[in-house]
């Protein structure tokens, strides 16, 4: 048992939970959060792939990938949220 193993399993669990949410949830914000959970799960997996038991240095490549993934994910989140806001405005306008 080591940190890599523990957090690897954590990541896979978080990914599966997010996947379930993305498939089942109906509410817009919750679906976005479910997708974000998936991305954190994938991040866990890559960080675990980089990990070496201290004092060995970790592999920097997956770290760079996860940082890229985080920036990509906030970009996608921002667009999804903008669409949610816009759809809300349009629906409210047509209700009135």
């Amino acid at each position: 048992m080591n940190s890599g193993l523990i957090f690897g399993l954590t990541g896979i669990a978080v990914f599966a939970i997010g996947l379930f949410g993305a498939l089942v949830m109906v509410e817009p914000l919750r679906r976005v959060l479910a997708l974000k959970l998936c991305s954190v799960g994938a991040g866990f997996l890559l960080v675990v792939g980089a990990w070496q038991a201290p004092p060995d240095m970790p592999d920097p490549v997956p770290h760079a990938l996860v940082i890229t993934g985080i920036v990509v994910m906030i970009s996608a989140t921002a667009v999804a949220l903008a669409l949610i806001r816009r759809l809300h405005s349009l629906e409210r306008a047509s209700d009135e």
């Binding site: 957090f7 991040g43 960080v47 240095m57 770290h63 996860v66 985080i70 949610i84 809300h88």
Partner: peptide, 30 residues
Amino acid sequence: RLSAPDVALAEAAIGTGLTGALLLTTLHHI
């Protein structure tokens, strides 16, 4: 804990902080 401080920082600042702010402002809107 997995010796990835750069990633942790990015996740805390962007993935959590700014994403949280985006979510809150959207919630306020809708």
